[in-house]
Write a protein that binds this DNA or RNA. Structure first.
Lengths: 334, 334
DNA sequence: CTGAAAGCGCTTACAG
DNA sequence: CTGAAAGCGCTTACAG
């Protein structure tokens, strides 16, 4: 392994001068700089990240905590990983990926041992057990997803209430008076997936305000329940003229379910949903929907985290920031 | 931050004794051990990973390199990430995730700076530019996916030739004499996705051997080409009694396409494919298929890498290991 | 503009 | 069974 000492020797200068040349933290004469650059190139030198981290107490690594729930639709998760990774690299950080089922333990292990400068939590639930671990760690963290207690935490999430109201208003404006909502599965509510009830409750309230007949039904997320539940919901509400789907697994199979039933969109039924453009592209979804904005959420969260790390005192109090709902009309309503 | 020195002071012993108590590398008296354990618990001490890495030259981190191709079906990638992460944790390693488009540069950066003990490359192509970087790095690496030149590398992959022959034999045994194959998109071939032609060429050869009318067609991976290409293929071969699909995006939409055409499986058409059980579950795929085994591939690759890291001299020459094809009959053929 | 020295938090020969 | 000391590869006050 070539070290800064090898470079110093080859260039005929001290190790500190090489270090300063690398960091640019003091002026170096042109001649010295040339010799150092040559030596670095000749020896193919890269500073050791561990030694640097030990000295500076900065690892330039962020921890990313995923949670894989048995009952969850996996493809929906990857959409957040890529934007987070990209945004981190743009700030000079690498990503340490943790997928252990005991997320709190993973967080504590990695934070305590000083492997990361900050933490990004995905798929946050209402009563997320990782939050106490995060509050106890000396590294800052950001959440993507709203927990019940946001005390002391930076939180980024879609405004699910706004999303629900936007969709209800859209359908109401088109004259719909009986609407069905397919929600996430029951166990998502039970384990504290707050986005599920934030969306549902806001939709219910808005529909009541408009005097719309509105009914919410649990969807499924696992084969073969997904299709069965959709059929049952549609069978049970023959008078509904519009369907709202807030369930990734359900909306992914909806085209095939509707085809099987001979239902044409939007002639026989208007359909609206909530998903990302990328997700829709992967599953060929043609529905008017609120954009779930994983790219923007990931980027905002990481940029905030970067500021917290680099300017600890100056970043201000924790923020809870909601992305406003943006409706993308794909012509699936009438 | 609490250090090993704080623990030593609290326990009234030297730092080296604490270190040995932690590592178990020498015997410690019961009384001393008790005092050390108490101090560690009281101070909530965890050794600093960076300092340990600097001293031992072991980071206990593996780099995982993904590649996201514009034209690729993203959900297929995540299936490999989880098994790799799980297998790594089981061996005590964490995972540094790299998703940069310039994978060779990312590999070199992370390897040269000593951030990882080893590297896992996913989505390897025939002429993968990351391989030279890997060969030049001092850390060992494993590939999931077969490159053109395996010299010096440990490689794990599905036996795509075996898979193709298994499927052709299966259909031939059922009496099929005209078969269509949907391959990955043309650009996958062009960029060197060897699995694409390994599967196709083996299928062609085996079909010829059986005297089967066999035609291979490029599928698509992006909306709306996926469905269109399937329709075109089926329109062009009305005499085909069986369809082989080696294309994640195509097989994901196949149920809906066949429904639209009023084609019943297996009564009107037999269908076979190649995907993982997990993938099939997410997309509700009912087809008889060869299992693509991402779990096993990920686990085998990481375990091999772990041995290379821990027993550099004793692991033997590089291996190229193919997982045999296993047919899972889901009743989509007759 | 540059160098010698201390120190980040560990591990491990060396010595007793 | 335990301790004092050296050293991993850096960065950064301190000094000139």
């Amino acid at each position: 392994m070539t070290t800064i000492g090898d470079v110093a020797k080859a260039a005929g200068v001290s190790r500190s001068t090489v270090s300063y040349a690398l960091s640019g933290k003091r002026t170096i004469s042109a001649e010295t700089r040339r010799r150092i650059d040559e030596a670095i190139a000749a020896l193919n030198f890269t500073p050791n990240a561990g030694a640097r981290a030990l000295k500076t107490s900065q690892t330039m690594v962020l921890g990313l905590l995923l949670q894989f729930h048995e009952d969850e639709f996996a493809p929906a998760m990857l959409q957040y990983v890529l934007p987070v990774t990209d945004a981190a690299r743009a700030l000079g950080y690498d990503i340490l990926l943790m997928t252990e089922s005991d997320g709190a333990a993973a967080l504590t292990r990695v934070a305590q041992s000083g492997m990361v400068d900050g933490l990004v939590l995905l798929d946050v639930t209402h009563n997320d057990p990782r939050l106490d671990a995060l509050r106890a760690s000396r590294q800052p963290g950001v959440l993507i997803g709203l927990p019940g207690d946001t005390d002391g935490l930076d939180v980024f999430d879609l405004d699910f209430g706004d999303a629900a109201r936007t969709l209800v208003d859209h359908l109401h404006g088109l004259g719909h008076r009986e609407i069905c909502l397919v929600t996430p599965p029951k166990h998502v509510f039970e384990r504290g997936g707050a986005y599920a009830w934030r969306f549902r409750d806001a939709a219910l309230e808005r529909a009541a305000h408009h005097g719309i007949h509105f009914s919410a039904h649990y969807g499924e997320s696992r084969h073969p329940g997904i299709e069965q539940s959709l059929h049952a919901i549609l069978d049970g509400r023959p008078g509904a003229t519009a369907l709202m789907v807030h369930n990734d697994a359900s909306v992914a199979v909806l085209p095939s379910v509707l085809h099987r039933r001979g239902v044409r969109v939007p002639d026989d039924l208007s359909v609206v949903s909530l998903y990302s453009t990328d997700f829709g592209r992967n599953f060929l979804l043609p529905y008017t929907a609120v954009e779930s904005s994983p790219d923007e959420l990931g980027r905002l969260a990481v940029e905030r985290l970067g500021r917290r790390i680099q300017f600890p005192g100056e970043t201000g109090p924790p923020v809870v920031r909601f992305i406003a709902a943006e409706l993308i009309d794909r012509g699936s309503t009438s």
